[in-house]
Design a protein around this nucleic acid. Structure first.
Lengths: 250, 250
DNA sequence: CGACTATTTGATAGGACTCAACCTCCGTGG
DNA sequence: CCACGGAGGTTGAGTCCTATCAAATAGTCG
């Protein structure tokens, strides 16, 4: 199972990197973090990682793949709460709750690192500096949720889609090796509709609008931002909620 | 300033009670919490307590009054993120952020307890049990935000308003001395529109619909739920996200 | 290539918005 | 104590944005 060990290491690397963006880790801290990833799991496309109402026994770190969090209504309507990209913890916010209030699911085949809840709680209890960073992580997550609420509650379809693209651009840019302002969004238009509170058909027409204005281009699921400033202007996009080191000080 | 000292005590009492809902406090813990409320402030109606982009220098505990958190778009559109009722911390989630990503404001004249950020951070660093409860508090807050996102993104106007009323009913019920399933919502219809992503006019018509169905009654800002089950049914209201001891185990 | 899924297009319908007026309630001040 | 003014609630009419339905086209994978 050499492959598995490698993936655990990869998860650990992501994890350490996440913390090292904020502080210099002590040997002790590195040690305890390195032991936090108990396992990895591999999921197929469009599968649930953990479901609403399930007990929270572990936190998940996305090593590779594209995921989301969503809630369902009894009649099948679905609201996607956030997209989760590699290197991110997908559910730090439920660490302190006993049961999931939403579901985490994959879009693409996904590798996740499993961080048992007890391990994390132990770290939180004994390593205040690490606790603070995890907590901060959840705070950023929640700021994003708030911005999504504004998005869905106040913005028009065009503004909403523009805003989402701006957000994804900023969040994925650190990984963008091409320097072409492009990123992968392996999600159908219907799924984007679930994220933005719009129908699939309307997502389609809104994309056409954005393309016609020369703001974006896409081939398949790869989207390229042609004019970020104009897009951000339409979206009234203010990146400060992302607390991204690209924009804010730090 | 006897009045002020009393209010500080009142704030402290709310604070202690909040923690005692979860654990038995040690003398030491009680002590440190009792010192956390450094001051109280009184705000008039419709005034901002702390604004978006301001430094987070303190956390606010609502002692008396009715408040909300909101975000503005540059063109004036507003999305209310949550309502805050007495006994609640209004911004635990930003504790770990340097700057506010939203504004906290009053509807009614309001008394708030000021908890300096450094005091809280010190408590968080040195009293893991207390840290956990604060953290859990933020987690519940965020679960509510997620449900609001579902509300605005997926539900119709009627469902949205019904859902909000269900939520407020459950959250205020512990304070409802009348046993009449009623609560105060000192907010205009336009403001409800800002919370639900609807126009004031449409809120008005939706209220008429709910009243015509015999689901609610109101005189002024006092709303009374006449048929909670039917209301919850329309709203597809599942209270588990509130983690309320009235519903969940605990 | 064939079956399925996703995107696109067209036509129609409907929920919610806007605008504008009117009514009601209340606090203020003459 | 009543007149006034302003804010909030209510109503009506017309419009627009977005949803729905249905069908055609394009893409993808075995």
């Amino acid at each position: 199972m050499a492959g598995k060990f490698q993936a655990v290491d990869l998860a650990t690397m992501h994890l350490l990197r996440k913390f090292e963006r904020h502080i210099e880790l002590s040997a002790n801290e590195r040690n305890v973090l390195a032991k936090a990833v108990s396992d990895i799991k591999v999921y197929g496309p469009h599968s649930d990682i953990i479901r609403e109402s399930e007990r929270v026994s572990a936190i998940h770190l996305i090593v590779d793949g594209f995921c989301c969090r969503y809630k369902l209504l009894p009649d099948g309507r679905r609201q996607i709460i956030s997209f989760v990209i590699p290197g991110e913890l997908c559910d730090p916010g439920v660490l302190m709750l006993d049961r999931m209030d939403h579901t985490i699911a994959t879009f693409t085949p996904t590798i996740v690192g499993i961080l048992p809840r007890e391990s994390i709680l132990e770290i939180v209890a004994n390593f205040p500096r690490l606790a603070k960073i995890i907590w901060r992580d959840t705070a950023v997550d929640d700021a994003i949720t708030r911005e999504w609420l504004v998005n869905v509650g106040q913005r028009t379809a065009l503004e909403r889609l523009a805003h989402l693209l701006c957000e994804l651009h900023v969040r994925t840019r650190p990984n963008d090796k091409t320097g072409q302002n492009q990123f992968n969004l392996p999600v159908t238009q219907a799924e984007l509709g679930d994220a933005l509170g719009l129908s699939a058909v309307h997502i389609n027409r809104t994309f056409q609008d954005l393309r016609a204005q020369g703001l974006i281009e896409n081939s398949g699921k790869t989207y390229r931002i042609m004019d970020f400033d104009a897009l951000a202007n339409i979206a009234m996009f203010n990146p400060s909620y992302l607390q991204s080191s690209d924009y804010g000080r730090e």
